[in-house]
Design a protein around this nucleic acid. Structure first.
Length: 424
RNA sequence: GGAGAGGUGGCAGAGUGGUCGAAUGCGCCUGACUCGAAAUCAGGUGUGCCGCAAGGUACCGGGGGUUCGAAUCCCUCCCUCUCCGCCA
């Protein structure tokens, strides 16, 4: 949610910023709903002040006195009037809130112009693409792949996109999760193991609801949602709380499985491990002072890049253009690993600054020593990292002539041996 | 799942229909005293929203109701605690 004052006072600025995201938003109807709500509010509050004054007077009058009786009948009329207008006020308030929720976050000035993913800016590229994978093939074409990554049985048991990970395949998943958590902890992120179901209020605070309902798995009859990312429970950890300014920045990391319905995906994007309905991910989250959020974004991206460097995976960083920014982000970097067999880049992390957008929805604030008032924090998050695509890149890039996969040195202590074998 | 108790400000804890946004204590902030501190004394100390402002208004777990008037009465939902049952 945006600052209502900003919308009222500088609508043209908001309009221009939204245009940079190439989104169509009816700002005028938002402004209209806001004005209607304020008019209703003033009307009702005036009536209430009349009522309050009369009630204070009645409290001192003898119960049966003529003055009391006169006030009583007078206030009966006011009371029913308030009741009537209050219904209108609630409707106007709801309409206003709904309208406000349709407004996306504004992009930062440093976000490049552009409408499509092709216009994202390649911010940096790391590693050797050519010589890194002399034997690479797409991971699903590796002989024996199906023995360790069983999609058919996954389909039988649950559905497409829910594979079994078996033997060394499962072990590599676990190694990556542990490696990520340990590295993230070293970088200062405190580990959290959150609930993997969230309620509607939490999903609304982070922006999954009301629009992206169809992307989540929902349970009945409790109306809980399987987490699409640990970002949701993690961000909501401090919902409706006022933090101590001295505690900022707060850094947290969490591993969870992530569940995404991914309605409408098809083709090469979804082959093999590229896109699953359930996958493992470690998420990084920061609650920071507003004055420092862009420095913190750079630091976050650096932390994630460090993981890829240690795993010796070639990667590149994209700076997302306005049109490819998400609804809630002010600025976003995507990190993509090179999958040498598929010869394509796979997104393994998005590092985003949400500024106060999520914090306003979630009411996460701190008390400023300087002003003495409460202010909204800025929230940032990034994957550190998504497991299956990292795993795919390792399988493809590190495939050796004997059909085994070389485990990156940093991962060997976790995996327990230097090679993964598809034989067993 | 069953039975009971309870949800009030940063914390503890009063308040059971009327000038209650809410006593009191603790904590915290400011000032006085002090070389400084402690102790003591005085004052202050919740969060929003509307309004240029003056000011107004809302919030006692959430929602609804009764009433001229609700922290207080009624309904409903949620949560916490204790006991029992079940269970990884």
């Amino acid at each position: 949610m945006l600052d209502p004052k900003l919308i009222r006072e500088t609508p043209d600025l908001v309009r221009a910023a939204i245009a940079k995201k190439h989104l169509k938003v009816d700002l005028d109807s938002v402004l209209g709903a806001d004005a209607a709500w304020r008019a209703h509010l003033q009307e009702v509050e005036h009536l209430r002040s009349v009522q309050k004054a009369a009630n204070a007077a009645m409290a001192t009058l003898p119960k049966g006195s003529p003055e009391f009786v006169a006030k009583l009948s007078e206030m009966k009329a006011v009371s029913s009037q308030i009741k009537e207008k209050d219904a209108g006020l609630k409707a106007a308030e709801e309409a206003c809130r709904e309208a406000m929720l349709t407004l996306p976050n504004l992009p930062h000035a440093s976000v490049p112009e552009g409408a499509t993913p092709e216009q994202n800016v390649v911010y940096s590229t790391h590693g050797d693409l050519v010589s890194v994978s002399p034997h690479a093939v797409a991971h699903w074409d590796i002989p024996g792949f199906a023995r360790l990554y069983d999609f058919e049985r996954g389909s039988k048991v649950t559905g497409a996109g829910f594979p079994f990970f078996i033997g060394d395949g499962a072990r590599l998943v676990r190694s990556l999760i542990n490696f990520f958590l340990d590295e993230d902890a070293k970088a200062g992120y405190r580990e959290v193991s959150p609930p993997i179901f969230i309620n509607a209020a939490s999903a609304t605070a982070t922006g999954q609801l009301p629009d992206k309902e169809g992307q989540m798995y929902e349970t009945t009859p409790d109306r809980l949602f399987a987490v699409p990312t640990a970002e949701v429970p993690l961000t909501n950890f401090f919902r409706d709380e006022i933090l101590d300014e001295a505690s900022l920045p707060v850094l947290r990391c969490a591993y969870t499985p992530c569940f995404r319905r991914e309605a409408g995906s098809y083709g090469k994007d979804v082959r093999g491990l590229n896109r699953l309905h359930q996958f493992d991910k470690v998420e990084l989250l920061k609650w920071v002072h507003p004055s420092r959020s862009y420095e913190e974004l750079d630091a976050l991206r650096n932390d994630v890049e460090g993981l890829l460097r240690k795993l010796e995976i070639p990667y590149r960083v994209l700076l997302m253009c306005g049109g490819d920014l998400g609804f809630a982000q002010s600025k976003k970097y995507d990190l993509e690993v090179w999958a040498g067999g598929q010869k394509r880049w796979l997104e393994v992390s998005s590092c985003s600054n949400f500024e106060a957008f999520q914090a306003r929805r979630a009411q996460i604030r701190f008390r400023s020593k300087e002003s003495g008032k409460t202010e909204l924090v800025h929230t940032l998050n990034g994957s550190g990292l998504a497991v299956p695509r990292v795993l795919a890149a390792i399988l493809e890039n590190n495939l050796e002539s004997d059909g085994r996969v070389r485990i990156p040195e940093a991962l060997v202590p976790y995996f327990g041996k230097p090679h993964l074998s598809f034989a067993g």
